[in-house]
């Protein structure tokens, strides 16, 4: 079973079903579905209510494509509380920022030492600006 990082731990991939493209999803799915987003195909392309989703994967074609960061944040700001999984070609050194934007699962396309990667989730102990992990900016907490 493929491994990934989820909620700060190395775990097996629990998602059993298919992962759909947004256009494959009905407006009112009967059971929770998984959807794959990618740059150019953001949260606005999801046809159903976010509460119908069991998993959102956001695919990085290249680690430098920063659109994915905004997509995760917009999903969280719209009230989605399920798993947001980064897939594809992001890198370990982005984990801290990805987590701040609302990603809580990370499935690398490349072979990496997942246990070693966990350290990068806590590169910083404090941040200036508000984000998903800390909705209040530092200036409200000084």
């Amino acid at each position: 079973m493929p491994k990934l990082i989820k909620d700060g731990r190395v775990v097996d991939d629990q998602w059993q079903g298919e992962i759909l493209q947004p256009e494959q999803i009905p407006e009112s799915p009967a059971a929770p579905v998984a959807v794959q987003l990618e740059p150019g195909q953001g949260p606005a392309t999801i046809p159903c209510a976010l509460s119908n989703l069991g998993l959102v994967t956001i695919f990085f074609p290249a680690f430098t494509d920063g659109r994915c960061f905004s997509y995760a944040r917009e999903l969280r700001e719209s009230g989605y509380t399920g798993e947001i999984r980064a897939t594809g070609h992001f890198i370990r050194d982005q984990l801290f920022y990805l987590q701040r934007c609302g990603f809580n699962a990370f499935q690398f396309a490349e072979e990496v030492d997942l246990d070693a990667c966990l350290a990068s989730l806590s590169d910083f102990s404090e941040s200036y600006q508000a984000a998903v992990d800390q909705p209040e900016p530092l200036f409200l907490r000084r």
Binding site: F63, T64, D65, G66, F69, S70, R73, Q94, F96, Y97, L98, R100, C101, F124, S127, Y128, Q129, A131
Partner: peptide
């Protein structure tokens, strides 16, 4: 500084 969303513009 270290804005998580805008580091890969």
């Amino acid at each position: 500084t270290f804005h998580p969303e805008f580091a890969f513009l």
